[in-house]
Design a protein around this nucleic acid. Structure first.
Length: 260
DNA sequence: ATGACAGTCTGCGACTGA
C-alpha cells in the first residue's frame, strides 16, 4: 500500500499537477494539506475520473486537509480527536491492504506557529500536545497507522538549509522539536529516516529568493509510522519532480510503501 | 535597489504562509 502526503497550497490551482501525480505515482492513499477551499468546492469530479475517492474537511481560504484514495475511506474522523479546533487541520480514516489488513491513515496540517512568543506559537504547541494524546489512543489499538502531513517542524538542523537564519523560526524551536521527538519516543518512526540518513534533504522550498533553484529548503513534511506499520515498510522517498513544474506548490510529495 | 513569492478574499491592498 503506497501512502503519500503533499501540501498542495490550493487544490484548485494545483489540479493539473495533482492529476498528473496521481496518474504517474499511483498512490493508494494521498494525504493533502492546504486545499484552501470549502469541502463542497473540492474539484472531486476530475479526481473521480481517475478512479480516486475524496474525503476532506475544508474552510474558506485557509487550511483544509483531504484523503484521496483508490478505495473508499471507512470510519472517517474529521478534526483532531480530543482537541477543540476551529481550523480544518485533521482528517483520518481506515483503508484495507491487499492482505485484507486495516491501515489507519491521518492527514494533518500542523500550525506554522510563527511568530514565536505569540498565541500562534502556543496554539502550535497545544496542537502538538493534542496530536500526542491522539497518537497514544491509536497505539492502544495496535493496528498499523500512518500520521502523514505537513508537520511544520524541522526535526533537526540537518533538515534546514540555513539553521542560523532559521533559529528564531517556530519550525526549529526546541519546544517544537521536543514535541516531535516525543512522538517518536511513543514508538512512531520517521519513515524517511529509515532509508535516508543524509542531511539537507527537503520537502519544501520557499517561493522567494530562488530557494528551489539553489536547493535551499526544509524537511517539514513527514510520515510517522506506528510500530505495526514500521514493521511493514518497504520503501520511502521524496518525489522532487512536482516542485520543478510551472505554478508548483512550495511543497513536494513524500511517500512510503507498506507491505500489507 | 522603490526589487526580488504565491495563495485567499475583507479584492487591486491586506492577510497568511514558512
Amino acid at each position: 500500500m503506497k501512502i503519500a502526503s503533499w501540501n498542495v497550497n490550493s487544490v484548485k490551482v494545483r489540479m493539473p499537477h495533482l492529476l498528473d501525480w496521481l496518474k504517474s505515482a499511483q498512490p493508494d492513499v494521498l494525504c493533502l494539506q492546504e486545499i484552501k477551499c470549502l469541502a463542497d468546492d473540492f474539484p472531486r469530479l476530475e479526481v473521480r475520473t481517475l478512479g480516486y475517492h475524496v474525503e476532506c474537511i475544508g474552510q474558506r481560504a485557509y487550511n483544509g486537509v483531504a484523503l484521496v484514495s483508490k478505495e473508499p475511506a471507512r470510519d472517517i474522523v474529521t478534526g483532531l480527536p480530543g482537541f477543540k479546533d476551529d481550523q480544518a487541520r485533521y482528517i483520518e480514516a481506515s483503508f484495507t491492504g491487499a492482505a485484507g489488513e486495516e491501515v489507519r491513515v491521518g492527514s494533518l496540517y500542523l500550525p506554522n506557529g510563527n511568530p514565536i512568543g505569540t498565541g500562534k506559537f502556543s496554539y502550535k504547541l497545544a496542537w502538538m500536545d493534542g496530536l500526542h494524546g491522539h497518537a497514544q489512543d491509536l497505539l492502544r489499538r495496535e493496528i498499523p497507522f500512518v500520521m502523514a502531513g505537513d508537520y511544520n517542524i524541522c526535526p533537526t538542523d540537518d533538515d534546514v538549509f540555513d539553521p542560523v537564519a532559521m533559529s528564531d523560526d517556530a519550525l526549529c524551536q526546541p519546544e517544537s522539536r521536543a514535541r516531535f521527538r516525543a512522538l517518536t519516543y511513543l514508538g512512531l518512526t520517521d519513515a524517511y529516516r529509515v532509508y535516508h540518513r543524509d542531511a539537507h534533504k527537503y520537502t519544501f522550498w520557499d517561493y522567494q529568493a530562488g530557494r528551489w533553484n539553489r536547493d535551499e529548503g526544509l524537511r517539514i513534511d513527514h510520515l510517522l509510522l506506528s510500530p505495526q506499520a514500521a514493521d511493514r515498510i518497504a520503501a520511502c522517498d521524496i518525489d522532487k519532480s512536482p516542485r520543478g513544474k510551472d505554478r508548483a506548490s512550495d511543497h513536494t510529495p513524500i511517500w512510503c510503501e507498506l507491505a500489507v
